[in-house]
Design a protein around this nucleic acid. Sequence first.
DNA 1: GCCGTTTTCGGCCCGACTGTTTTCAGTCG
Length: 575
Amino acid sequence: MARRNEEVEALLREYADLVAITGGDAFKARAYEKAARAIGGYPADVSALDAEGLREIPNVGRSIAEKVAEYLRTGRMAVVEERRAMIPAGVRELISIPALGPKKALRLYEDLHISSVDELAAAIEADALADLKGFGEKTQENIRHGIELLRRAGARVPLPSALDTAEEIVAELSGVTGCRRCAYAGSLRRMRETVGDLDVLVAAERSARFMEALCELPVTAEVVARGTKKTSVRTGKGLQVDLRVVPPESWGAAMQYFTGSKAHNIRTRTIAVHLGLKLSEYGLFDAESGESVASRTEDEVYARLGLPWIPPTLREDRGEIEAALRGELPEVVTERDVRGDLHTHTDLTDGLASLEAMVEAAAERGYAYYAVTDHAPDLYMQRMTEEKILAQRERVRELDGTRRRMRLLHGTELNIGPEGEVDWPAEFLAGFDLCVASLHSHFDLSREAMTRRLVRACENPYVDVIGHPTTRLIGRRPGVDADWDEVFAACARTGTALEVNSQPDRLDLRDEDILRAKAYGVKFAVNTDAHAVPHLGQLRYGVATAQRGWLTRDDVVNTWPLTRLRRFLRRPGRS
DNA sequence: GCCGTTTTCGGCCCGACTGTTTTCAGTCG
């Protein structure tokens, strides 16, 4: 369920954007952004705090605390509403276009009265920007491309936001009298990286109460269609929700049918036909007699088709049917299998929480080990020094084993330079228990140069894991261009793991790339890259992505016992 | 607007890159 922290975070971010667009003090906008981040990353629920309690949160001072308290009390924040009245909502939408910031957005609005992405696209099409200062040919082309990127992801919703909405709806409908079962299905159950609409299923004898309940939920903004078997609504954020109510005896067949994917369903239905059966959302039936042969559980339906139950994350018709028929379905990694996180930050660099707070929260998750990997100095903005990281190492050693006997690894997140070089010399790197190395700049090298760069990083004996390997941001930035087959081969050859980064806007590597890399014998690390305590919980997205890439425990180094992991993190010159 | 082991004022992650405004503004990480 969504905490109010996320609501407040979104509101403060909106205010920060509006301040930036209306040309307010840039530092003020930054202050609101920092406060938004801090509240989103704050472990406790803000709705339990008053203004004084709110001020305990770093980067929340008197003014912001009062505004947040006002919002929590009244559901409104006056200053936000004032700014909203000055600037149409569509203008803020403009700055979500990569390459377009607040200054250009305001110019477009003031000079050409453009106040939506659609209007901007039309204006570029009509060559209406030609005389606008600061909008040369290249800039226009960049904006055009940015709009394309935005639209490609546009209609789909990020996984966490879809999951929050779905869980809220399932919780509400589960409480309605007569509810026998309630769950979400569709691409959300398959944990695709973005979700187009929500499919919610209810098993009950009568449907009317559920249809009514859905239409009256607080998240429902608009009723699209309302019937006895199916009702569709749209949420305030524009996400369509389809509710299906089925008889309890059809539950398994309905879950199977509505989970999909379409391609997977076509395969299962074809198998049914060959067996003289017919598969629908109501059950598996004998084609001639029409008699039901299976429908109560998914297990039962798959079994009658001669298949084991297939995890939803595998149902994409990427070979899972064939593997299942051969009895070779992988036993995919689960969140419970993960023994530790190998990529996390603290407030020594750009994290929000102290080392102690992160370690405490990790221990509470029941981890056997946990790595602290703050940024290295080549990411200038983090102001890292040898002294600072050595002091941190000392503290890590002190804390090692003191929280639920969780073992601590001291690491760093290195920057892979344009030539594949990293921040520190070998003798200094040798002091770390592990090194993650990631791209943070120079994303537009040629394919050859990018490949060489990544391969060199793999060949560095101190680099154990390549962090967020493609550096894509879902819907905002494509991954870097490289010959990935060559990179995967290098990872396998050098024993360098690839990260499956769990941040929901990264999910990097993504499922298809994982499948390809796995074929080379590459090992993986499913990490959160947490910058705050609540981020540790984002592991579920990384694990789901790993599942979608068919990874087993053996493929994922941070499911291994510490002794095996330490052998993998070989330190040259140390036995 | 926030913050303080130099500071209650005067800083604020700071440098790279890009395109275009021929000396710099805007965007990004």
